[in-house]
């Protein structure tokens, strides 16, 4: 069944400052949308607003999931509706082991207990695919992890939680060439008619592996240009100045 995540004229402020000035975007399952933009254009604000971060206040507009307004839902309620955000800077949580976190998360999103044996088998398979050593499971969540390790763990979570809509906030940052390929291929493998992906990035490089259906340019908290995959290539060669000049 086709699902939609629709953002309607979204105005968002952070600590009293308006950052998003009316974003409108519709993502259907089966589609990959890339959002590109300079630093400070509002990309991360958009991703955290979609996930329901309490610091980001929706002044006006709506977020609709299959036509139902989810703007007021808490982050965990959104996650249970299978919306997933891969963080640009995953939070380190000392004392909570990766295994405990993953198991609790999978159980919460699925809504039922996952037998220990099944969980271990599932996780081991995905660990191997992402080339993550098994001893990660007993380490504290993201604590002391390198940038690349954190991004691999975010990707592992996406695999385990099987979201219907995934927002990937600069998942390519902090990855070396091999890790970028491995993570990108994992994400590409999750592309399906039953999943929509919103991929936020500065660069074209991840889009070499995950070809977007739509590319949008975010500038000053507004989507100022949309196009196909070629738009990303054009941005890579020309930069953002020409878009900036056309919109000032």
């Amino acid at each position: 069944m086709k699902s939609t995540l629709e953002i309607k004229d979204l105005v968002v402020s952070v600590e009293g400052k308006t950052v998003l000035h009316g974003i409108t975007l519709k993502v259907n399952t089966g589609e990959v949308h890339a959002i590109m933009g300079r630093n400070g254009s509002g990309k991360t604000t958009l991703s955290h607003t979609l996930m329901g971060h309490p610091k980001y206040k929706v002044i006006s507009g709506q977020i609709l999931l299959n036509g139902v307004d989810i703007t007021g839902l808490s982050p965990d309620e959104r996650a249970k509706k299978r919306i997933f955000l891969a963080f640009q800077y995953p939070t380190a949580v000392p004392g909570v082991s990766v295994a405990n976190f993953l198991r609790t998360s999978v159980r919460s999103v699925r809504g039922d207990e996952v037998p220990a044996k099944e969980f271990r088998a599932l996780v081991k398979k995905e660990l191997a695919a992402l080339k993550i050593p098994e001893n990660f499971m007993t380490r504290s969540l993201n604590d002391g992890f390198s940038g690349g390790e954190k991004k691999r763990l975010e990707t592992l979570q996406m695999k385990l939680l099987q979201p219907i809509f995934a927002v990937l906030d600069e998942t390519d940052s902090g990855l070396d060439i091999d890790a970028l390929k491995n993570v990108s291929e994992t994400i590409e493998s999750m592309r399906s008619t039953e999943r929509g992906i919103l991929l936020i990035t500065h660069y074209q490089r991840m889009l070499n592996y995950i070809k977007p259906d739509h590319v949008h340019v975010l500038l000053g908290g507004r989507i100022v240009k949309s196009g196909g995959a070629n738009l990303a290539l054009e941005l890579e060669s020309r930069g953002y100045d020409w878009i900036h000049e056309a919109n000032t």
Partner: peptide, 11 residues
Amino acid sequence: HLYYLESRGID
């Protein structure tokens, strides 16, 4: 920390 865990479905 709370937000990160909540974003993974943990109430």
